[in-house]
Design a protein around this nucleic acid. Structure first.
Lengths: 141, 141
DNA sequence: CTCGCTATTGCAATAATGTTGCAACTGCAA
DNA sequence: TTGCAGTTGCAACATTATTGCAATAGCGAG
């Protein structure tokens, strides 16, 4: 398991434990956004006694080290995903729940506009709306 | 108190109670984003025995009737504000916590771009980042 | 103006999600 | 192999939101 997370952790004096490896692997393999609960469930498939608090603490650590990104895509729930080199943003369909990633170059002139007009540097953005092929015009969720 | 909320509620067969009036008034007078807890606190200044659950239920109702908008501007907390005729979006500074409203016309070509390239209709968006006059380049929150 | 039906409220219990204190355990380096 | 500081599991707690239910109170009918 020669991933760069192990590397980073050890270099910084943290220990590599099975729990941490598992959390990391779940995130890598999934490639999706997962909630802490989903991560815990998947970890427990292989290591049943792992505790939620350990998962939370591991995620907190990985986020702190910029190995994992925490995103809020709606009320009252945090999602986690492996931090990628290229930052990305989210489109959240409020009808079907689909989440799509887009990149800086898909944002058009928005970042420049915000910086110039609002003095605001955009780092990450979330767009709520609906996909055309999902709900149609005014469907209710 | 001849506001259109009373109107709407009564027309639909709901009752106008002091609790509902107060929640509505707090939201109108504040003009900001408030959490349920903040709303409850302000309501209780005038009507001390009002219960949180009543506030939650009132907010739920007002949101359902499109009189109030619920927004998620970060993990684990919902904000409420009076629904305005013109929809708006949010810039959230992760350093100083400031929240700025912007309107559709401030979004540049993003909505058109998303619809054309991603088949996604943007309804509301939230931009996380930092304001130039707040943290500087790489300040920590 | 009074009355009664039913929407609404207050309260307390419960749920959902996340955090923390602490004793026991275990990586890792010497 | 051993020791100790970093980690874990557990249970308790914290925060935010929801719900069941009996008591209360709008509002329309009379």
């Amino acid at each position: 398991m020669t991933h760069h997370a192990t590397q980073t952790l050890l270099e910084l004096g943290y220990r590599m434990t099975p729990q941490r490896t598992l959390v990391w692997d779940v995130l890598r393999q999934s490639g999706e956004h997962l909630t802490a609960e989903q991560i815990c469930a998947r970890v427990q498939e292989q290591f049943p006694h792992v505790n939620m608090s350990t998962v939370y603490r591991t995620l907190e650590l990985l986020v702190e080290l910029n190995l994992v990104k925490e995103t809020c895509l709606g009320p009252s729930r945090r999602y986690y995903e492996v931090e990628e080199e290229v930052p990305h943003h989210h489109l959240v369909c409020e009808h079907c729940g689909k989440i799509v990633h887009i990149h800086d170059e898909d944002l058009g002139n928005l970042p420049r506009l915000l910086e110039r007009e609002q003095g605001f540097v955009a780092e990450e953005l979330t767009v709520f709306g609906h996909c055309l092929d999902c709900g149609g015009d005014h469907a209710h969720p």
